[in-house]
Amino acid sequence: MKLEARGLSIGYGRRLVGRDLDLEVAPGQIVCLLGPNGCGKTTLFRTLLGLIPALGGEALLGGAPLRRLARAEIARRISYVPQAHAPPFPYEALEIVMMGRTARLGRFAQPGPGDRTAACAEMERLGIADLAHRDYSRLSGGQRQLVLIARALAQQAPLIVMDEPTASLDFGNQSLVLGEIGKLAHAASRDGQGVILSTHNPDHAFALGAEVVLMHDGAIHRRGRPEAALTAASLSEVYGVPVMVERTPSGRHVCLPGPGA
């Protein structure tokens, strides 16, 4: 299952946020979307999920135009991990994960034992089985994010979209969630699942070894391997502050505010 954007224009109503975007998430691929606030990352994701209509061009899912697909058909093909949030009512974490099974249920059906098993298995896989009966709204940000990732996994879709899964998390939780995403993305990649995620931290793209798409002002500025796309020059231009990219003695890349910043 391939997710494609062809000459896609995105935005809300008459307000254009980005135009002529070409993008592809192929099976087994991990794509990392980077760019400053307001560059159109979330708008692009909402368009690719069919939550808002494209203003031009086309979004294709497995070759079929997204706008022709019913919500349940899209949900069986793409799962979505939003930023950690709290619903107004104290659902159990397991209930939140089971909601990932909705697209596989009949309109009037309830999730059954099979769905429960699937949900528990995904929580197990992320090491959060002990949270199953805890109140989701009282979990830490990192735990909630993992619950939402488990929900996306329970959806068993060939594509996963994650919108800034590490934003609004503290340092420890960022590492925790990023570590899980790394394991998951590589497992997904082996199974032929495609993953596209956005992040504010260019280090994450290096850490994940993901294919990079660097957005700027509603257009794609650079793309490719992190080492090629995320250079001091491109990052400085996009983020508007001097940025240095350094290699640590252990061989990892880190991005730092440059001299003069």
């Binding site: 919500r71 949900a75 909601m99 990932g100 909705t102 059906a109 959806q155």
Partner: peptide
């Protein structure tokens, strides 16, 4: 009843989970 439950997560998420 199950779909109404999912709607408590908000429109965007409910739709991404396959609920009209």
């Amino acid at each position: 009843r199950w779909r109404i439950n999912v709607l408590a997560l908000g429109d965007d998420e409910a739709r991404a989970l396959g609920v009209e």
